[in-house]
């Protein structure tokens, strides 16, 4: 490459990196400053990070928010991986009628992101369950009431983390990825496993899972970050501070009015970014091999 041209490329990239990274560097610096300095334009790091962290962790419930976010992210990522592993196992290695129909049924849900379903979902998740099983069954077997009237009985999970987790549990993306990956596995392998007398669970445990580590890693990364970033659903379904997740928690830390302590807010921002960054760094390689570089997404 000619020297002038490469200088120009460097200039463009350095400029872009500064623009993209500056807000985070800014947040990092401000997180270390005393509350007196933070409102000035000064970009000199201070020594108040631990003090800020302590205040925001306890007084503003950051610790609580982080624990909740961690809980939902881990459970959803795990649940999605396990459920879609089993679903894809059935879809690829079993012979049964209506297989394509089931696959289409799962894939169609890509069209219905949870955000769009909040109105129907809120009723279903937050309405109290039926007092007696008989009442529930009566309702479910009355097609007019069950399908055409507003939801009568729900799960009664308003304000609980289970209510946040459950709607995210099954995954079209996961089934799609695992199915594609399983289809690329030579069928002689499945044949020989069966001839050796392996049942499907052993086949999954000893052959499929070890062969799918990249896909599993990619899915774990995508889903962990996806759920960690969830905002609208927890904002609607969770009311008590003690059950809130960190993304909505940030909003609550900021909306304390005029007295908002920006150094502590920036500390919360920095801390809330660490888990997804760690997951990203840890699973980056399998993400690239199992998802970004594969031709089918």
């Amino acid at each position: 490459m000619k020297k002038n041209e490469s200088l120009w490329v460097h200039a463009v990239l350095i400029f872009a990196c500064i623009i993209i990274c500056f807000p985070i560097v800014f947040a990092l610096i401000k997180a270390t400053q005393e509350s007196g300095d933070v409102t000035s334009a000064s970009l000199v790091p201070g020594g108040a990070f631990w003090k800020n962290l302590q205040i925001v962790w306890y007084d503003y419930h950051l610790g609580c928010y982080l624990r909740n976010s961690f809980f939902i992210s881990v459970w959803v990522a795990l649940g999605k991986i396990v459920l879609s592993l089993f679903a894809s196992l059935a879809l690829v290695f079993y012979r049964f009628k209506g297989k394509n129909l089931v696959f289409v049924f799962i894939i169609v849900t890509l069209m219905l992101p949870t955000e769009m379903l909040i109105l129907g979902l809120f009723d279903l998740v937050s309405t109290q369950p039926a007092a007696k099983l008989v009442l529930l069954l009566q309702w479910m077997f009355d097609p007019v009431e069950f399908f055409f009237a507003p939801t009568k009985y729900g799960f009664g999970w308003g304000d609980s983390l289970v209510g946040v987790v459950m709607p995210f549990m099954a995954s079209a993306t996961g089934v799609f990825l695992f199915r594609q990956h399983f289809l690329s596995i030579p069928h002689s392998l499945a044949d020989s496993a069966r001839i050796d007398g392996a049942n499907s669970l052993q086949f999954l445990r000893y052959i499929l899972i070890p062969m799918s580590l990249n896909t599993i890693g990619a899915l774990a990364l995508i889903q962990f970050i996806y759920v960690w970033d969830q905002y609208i659903w927890p904002r609607i379904i969770i009311r008590r501070t003690a059950n809130q997740v960190v993304q909505v928690g940030l909003n609550m830390i900021v909306s304390t009015g005029e007295s908002v302590q920006w150094s502590q807010v920036m500390t919360a921002v920095v801390v809330a970014m660490i888990p997804p960054l760690l997951v990203f760094a840890l699973l980056y390689r399998s993400f690239m091999n199992g998802y970004a570089l594969s031709s089918e997404k």
Binding site: T109, T114, L117, L119, G120, L124, F147, A149, P167, A170
Partner: peptide
């Protein structure tokens, strides 16, 4: 959690 709420949103 997907089809039923989607249908209920229509209703």
């Amino acid at each position: 959690f997907i089809f039923y709420p989607a249908w209920k949103a229509i209703i």
